[in-house]
Write a protein that binds this DNA or RNA. Structure first.
Length: 463
RNA sequence: GGCCCGUUCGUCUAGCGGUUAGGACUCCGGCCUCUCACGCCGGCAACAGGGGUUCGAGUCCCCUACGGGUCACCA
């Protein structure tokens, strides 16, 4: 069975790059009817964690990514890790190192002065004398001192690292007894039954270290996939300064989670020429072997376009629901579906749609000067006054078509073209020369309010 | 600096030895049209450079350049 995981360190929120690797892991597990697990890498006790984990769960929930089982917190498994440290100690595969930080700093400085790679020199590797007093030792693992460590990366292909310039006897337990990252990752991945480790390629050079741990402990080595990073539009590593990196910010900005996921899956992965993928299609087509081996730059315009595509196709009640969450209360508006359908081809985000809807629903508080100047002359007022009079005499105008029929009859009767009337009516309805179809706009506003708005416009310019 | 990974239009990408190098976003034209959008049609635009291998190279190999990652008692 395929088992994958997402293993963030608690940094406070779910990063958009994290979401992409999580999505890849999620898809691969689900596609193979396997398991997708969540593990919080909080071995550094100096950092927060409960709150950060909650943020990740929140973002997952918004995106519809479900992990299997309860999240695993490394901070709660220290006893377990200690057993493995002891096991390696007992088997002679690890040892206490009494070198102080100062000593190590000195050693590194000397190596760098000689233009050598900084690495632990193994001074306590075979030490069996009397330990220096007053030093809390760290535990180091005995890494191989020569040869190569090779593995096949599911994305990058066959990889081979020369032990001499990658490894040293790295620390697996700090002087306070807490275990370190590369040690616990290997243990947890093995114990959790991981078959496929999909992670950012910033971890690529950790992999040989983790393989050392797997081998020392006799665990089976999983398959690795190192996913290239997401770059900012300038081609540099994506950072907070590049705008929205927190997944939940996209919710605030009016994006659909489906669109964000669609955007992220296409960043570094493709299936022929297809751009839009439903979750079912993602599950059908996704395979980590098709992930690109080079980094890709974040492109906000493409995301906006994808969101617009979802805006056009998502069901109206779903969109209504999301608008409600953004504070637009039209759940009981009689024309709520018409509002969505009139705006879904114009608004690229929910926030935009909310603003556009408000512009129609609320009566205009001002009239756009340019539009007034361009479209409201004497004859326009006259036409508007006539239109108003006949409109008031009409009853039972309800649907867009009703307004259209009425308006066309009016135009024909007075031998006018629509262009004489459309823009003046728009200004009356929304205060500017831009709105959806005037008939839809009329229907949304309703006959009573429509009459009032024309009257208001005429009154405003009579004084 | 050592090691590792990478390099097709501005961006995301297709390509898996023989293509007029395809699609998408952006941008620019045009059409549609009650405005704005949407949609449709069209256009601009790329194989980092240099060596090989081969009848033939974007595709395979090497070098150079550039970009990224990583070298902690962080994860």
């Amino acid at each position: 069975m395929t088992v994958t995981r997402f293993a963030p360190s608690p940094t406070g929120y779910l990063h958009i790059g994290g979401l992409r690797t999580a999505l890849y892991s999620y898809l691969w597990a689900r596609k193979n009817s396997g398991k997708f697990l969540l593990r919080i890498e909080d071995t550094d006790l100096k950092r927060n964690s409960a709150e950060a984990a909650q943020k990740i769960e929140e973002a997952f929930a918004w995106c519809g990514l479900k992990h299997d089982g309860e999240p695993i917190y490394q901070s709660q498994r220290f006893d377990l890790y200690k057993q493995y440290v002891q096991q390696l100690l007992d088997e002679g595969k690890a040892y206490y190192c009494y070198a102080t930080k100062e000593e190590l700093d000195e050693m590194r400085a000397a190596q760098q002065a000689k233009k050598e790679r900084p690495r632990y020199d193994g001074r306590y590797r075979d030490f069996c004398g009397e330990p220096p007093s007053g030093v809390d030792p760290v535990v180091r693992i005995k890494a191989p001192t020569e040869g190569t460590i090779s593995f096949v990366d599911g994305i990058k292909g066959e990889l081979s690292f020369n032990v001499q310039d990658m490894l040293d006897d790295f620390i697996i337990a700090r002087s306070d007894g807490t275990p370190t990252y590369n040690f616990v990752v290997a243990i947890d991945d093995a114990l959790m039954g991981l078959t496929d480790v999909i992670r950012g390629d910033d971890h690529l050079s950790n992999t040989p270290k983790q393989i050392v741990v797997y081998e020392a402990l006799g665990f089976e080595i999983p398959k690795f996939y190192h996913v290239p990073m997401i770059l900012n539009p300038q081609g540099k590593k994506l950072s907070k300064r590049d705008g929205a990196t927190d997944v939940m910010e996209y919710k605030q900005m009016g994006y659909f989670p489906e669109a964000l996921l669609n955007f992220l899956i296409r960043l570094g992965w493709s299936h022929g020429d297809q751009e839009l993928f439903s979750m079912d299609e993602m599950l059908e087509y996704f395979d980590p072997k098709d992930i690109n081996s080079s980094a890709s730059a974040y492109n906000a315009e493409k995301l906006l376009w994808i969101n617009a595509q979802y805006m056009k196709s998502l069901p109206a009640d779903r969109i209504l629901n999301d608008l409600q969450a953004l504070g637009l209360d039209i759940a009981s508006h009689p024309k709520r579906e018409l509002i969505v359908d009139a705006l879904r081809e114009r608004a690229k985000t929910l926030v935009e749609m909310k603003e556009m809807a408000e512009k129609i629903i609320e009566k205009p508080t001002a009239y756009d000067e340019k539009a007034v100047k361009k479209f409201l002359d004497e004859s326009a007022f006259e036409i508007l006054a006539n239109y108003l009079q006949e409109l008031k005499a009409q009853d039972a105008l309800e649907k867009s078509e009703d307004f259209e029929t009425f308006t066309k009859a009016f135009l024909e009767k007075h031998d006018l073209k629509l262009k004489h009337l459309a823009q003046p009516l728009r200004i009356a309805m929304v205060g500017s020369a831009v709105s959806p179809s005037i008939y839809d706009t009329m229907a949304i506003i309703g006959k009573e309010a429509f009459v009032e708005r024309i009257e208001a416009l005429l009154a405003y310019f009579q004084s």
